[in-house]
Design a protein around this nucleic acid. Sequence first.
DNA 1: TCTGGGGTCCTAGGACCC
DNA 2: TCTGGGGTCCTAGGACCC
Length: 358
Amino acid sequence: MRIIAHLDMDAFFASLEEAGSPIFKGLPIAVGSDPKNGQGRGVVSTANYKAREYGIHSALPISKAWQLSQIAKVEGKPEVVFLPVDFERYNKAHEEIFEIIKKYSDLVEPASIDEFYFDLSFSKNYKEAKKICFRIKQEIKEELKVTCSVGLGLNKLIAKISAGMKKPDGFLAVPEKDAEKFLELLPIREIPGIGPKTEEKFNKLGIKIVKDLKKFSVEELHKMLGKWGIDLYYKIRGVDDSEIVENKEAKSIGEQITFEQNTLNSIYIGEAFENICKSVFKRFMTSGFKSFRTVGITVRFSDFETKTTAKTLKKPSSSKKEFELETMKLLLPYLDKRKNPKKKLIRLIGAKLEKFKS
DNA sequence: TCTGGGGTCCTAGGACCC
DNA sequence: TCTGGGGTCCTAGGACCC
């Protein structure tokens, strides 16, 4: 029988900032874009638990977060500490956590910068596995001064959901015999892969919790959701055979920027685009891949309409010149009448590389 | 409230080939 | 003369996740 663990860092970016700067201790922190006195674009990446009391959370527009901070100030509460995202620092912490988990399990999958799956099937039982989880939690706390939550279950799905239930600094094991009951009572939105659109779709049919979802046959879910519906049918019955995968290769490398102000100034856009391409290519060069075959761009207009265009080259390439030339050819039509007849201002541009060969 | 940036996976339609 | 079936590749867009 498998025993799978999922470890999820608590308010990761904000916790690391707090741990790194004692003066922030106890203060509300929002890591994300520059609020620029309420004029900033962009969103909150991570808010610590103190900031969440103000109503600030991930993906909240930074301007709104700034307003909430001003309101708090008027009420005599401490203002929010706004900090930029420091990926270098978080990546380093990620590696350190990976190394700690590695000491206890030889099958570890980093699922994102702040999440890991690992295999504890070698443990005699859940009690033994739990002990290991607590040792890992302890070690992370000692070394990095941040907390995490861990879930245990018979597969990745159960492990992930249970890790999320006792945040922060929590632990939950859902043994096999309880798995189906545990799932049945959850709101469908708790199932990873069911987002706002799918939730809405099911809500309209009166489907609220996982138990309601079980009314549908495999065929019905397949029809409604495509291939993923088949997975879902089994997942909600506690069946998830997906493996822990240790080394996942990247499928794409890309970057995009949102301008401070929407623009159609081709000199300005051109310069920004050049910088993006340079940076993307640099990352390609250090990725270890030998070649790419598809190049692509993204353009987002002022009304948020977003266009992507891609071109697959005849032959694999590793040429920076070719990347820059081909993406520029894709971008140019959006700057004039060809693909922008209404002369809409541009809000964001991006470039990416795909179809790698090692 | 006016919406980042980094990704992954899936789908549908068209081109093309045998 | 007016039209099959299977397969693959490519592109654009959508949903989702952190």
